[in-house]
């Protein structure tokens, strides 16, 4: 095959794309943990969260666990993913979408008793949209799946007994 100027340019660009693609893949693999927006209760159970600094914790608000203090903004609830639960303590205004069964992401730290002291609570809604009547007819307990809060590291040994 004759190496025309055009073929040479094609080869250079193909090589460039392979190199840039490989660099991007390696970088995202190396920073995989840092690119995670939040940890899950399973991460806490397996001891994979920082002990002294703030981190984000995501999960579903366990049904029946919300305990509001009538005289202040204090609220206590449990957060769960598909496998584990964590007790959370928060003082402040909750987002409108906060309710039992709702997915949320909180920012805070784990205290010595294993309670998560949250300083910020954000709601994480899922990708399902439907009219209220349909949601009523579906009538599942919460309407939410713990699926988004599974640790994304599929096939990765988390070091605990499941």
């Amino acid at each position: 095959m004759k190496m025309t100027a055009r073929r040479q340019r094609m080869a250079w660009i193909a090589l460039l794309l392979v190199v840039v693609g490989a660099a991007a893949a390696l970088a995202s693999a190396a920073f995989r943990e840092n690119l995670m927006y939040f940890h899950t209760p399973t991460d806490i159970a397996s001891g994979e969260v920082p002990s002294s600094t703030n981190f984000r914790l995501g999960g579903l608000v366990t049904t029946g666990s919300v305990d509001r203090d009538p005289d202040s903004l204090n609220v206590a609830f449990r957060l769960a993913d598909c496998d584990h639960e964590v007790q959370v303590q928060y003082s402040g205004i909750l987002p409108d979408l906060f309710r039992e069964g709702q997915g949320i992401v909180t920012m805070g730290y784990l205290d010595d008793e294993g309670t998560f002291q949250a300083q910020q609570v954000l709601a994480k809604h899922d990708e399902n949209y439907m009219p209220p009547e349909l949601a009523e007819r579906l009538a599942d307990e919460t309407g939410h799946s713990c699926e988004p809060f599974k640790p994304v590291r599929a096939g990765y040994d988390t070091g605990y007994d499941s």
């Binding site: 995202s28 927006y37 990708e127």
Partner: peptide, 10 residues
């Protein structure tokens, strides 16, 4: 690929 606050595609 990563845990995010943004929901997945509908």
């Amino acid at each position: 690929w990563w845990n995010s606050l943004h929901q997945t595609s509908s």
